[in-house]
Simulated assay, not measured.
Amino acid sequence: MSHYSTNIETAELGENGLSKKAGWITVYHVNQDTGEYQSASMEYLMPGVGLPAHSYPDKPELPPVGQALHRSADGKSWEFSPDYRGQTVYRTETRQEQTVTQFGELPDNVTPRKPESEFDAWDGKKWVLDKEAQAAAARKVAKQELASRKAGAASRMNELTYAVNLDIATEEEKAALTEWQKYAVLLSRVDVNATDIEWPEQPQ
């Protein structure tokens, strides 16, 4: 019998997780925080020595696309979980966009469905248009526009009124004052609650 050997000695683990026999063993490493599989390596174990921390001797099956491979919570087996990392999701309360950074099921307060407008609200299954919010926003914009137009008209009428009161207004300025006064009256009739506002034409 030859005293040479070309075989690689394989370590044997006991029930206590320690090596009963010196040799090499393939181990599979996981992330210490998430339990996600990271890599495999060959380790040489002396008798009575255990595996490196966060490592396991059982070979995992590779997950299908879209799944993450990780150790179970009790550390006894390998598991698959959905992996949406890198994908964009939207918070159902605020429509705020964010990128998924962890594997696992999506939280209940996010969805991969993109809202179509800033007035969409989540009904539990899909985005629906919040018509009241949309109308309120339109009223706010209309009020701001009306206030701006009225301020501009008042400023111009004051200038022209000074000229008329001082009896130094030209005929063009007198006519312009009349036009701006008409414009101010038309502005006062604008209904900011209307769905389609027709703004009066501002005098030149």
Rank of each mutant, 00 (worst) to 15 (best):
P60G: 04
T6W: 02
V27H: 06
K20R: 14
H29M: 09
Y37F: 15
L51P: 08
N31C: 12
T6S: 10
V65K: 15
E61G: 10
D33M: 10
W24N: 14
Y28W: 15
T34G: 07
S41Q: 13
G17N: 09
S41G: 05
T26V: 15
T26G: 00
K21R: 15
E61M: 14
E61Q: 15
L18Q: 15
N31P: 03
L69Q: 07
Y37P: 02
E43A: 07
G17M: 08
I25P: 03
A11W: 03
T10S: 11
Y56K: 12
T6I: 08
P57F: 08
Y37N: 02
A68R: 14
Y44M: 01
A11V: 00
Q67L: 13
A22D: 15
L45Q: 02
K21S: 10
P57D: 11
E43F: 02
A68V: 05
G50F: 01
Q67I: 00
Y37D: 03
G17P: 11
K20E: 14
E9P: 00
G17L: 07
S41N: 09
H54F: 15
T10N: 03
Y37V: 03
S55E: 04
P57C: 06
L51C: 04
H54I: 02
Q67W: 05
G50P: 06
S39P: 00
K21E: 14
P63G: 10
P63F: 03
L69N: 02
Y44V: 05
I25E: 09
Y28Q: 13
K21M: 06
K59Y: 01
G35Y: 02
Y56L: 14
G23M: 08
L51V: 04
T6P: 00
G23K: 08
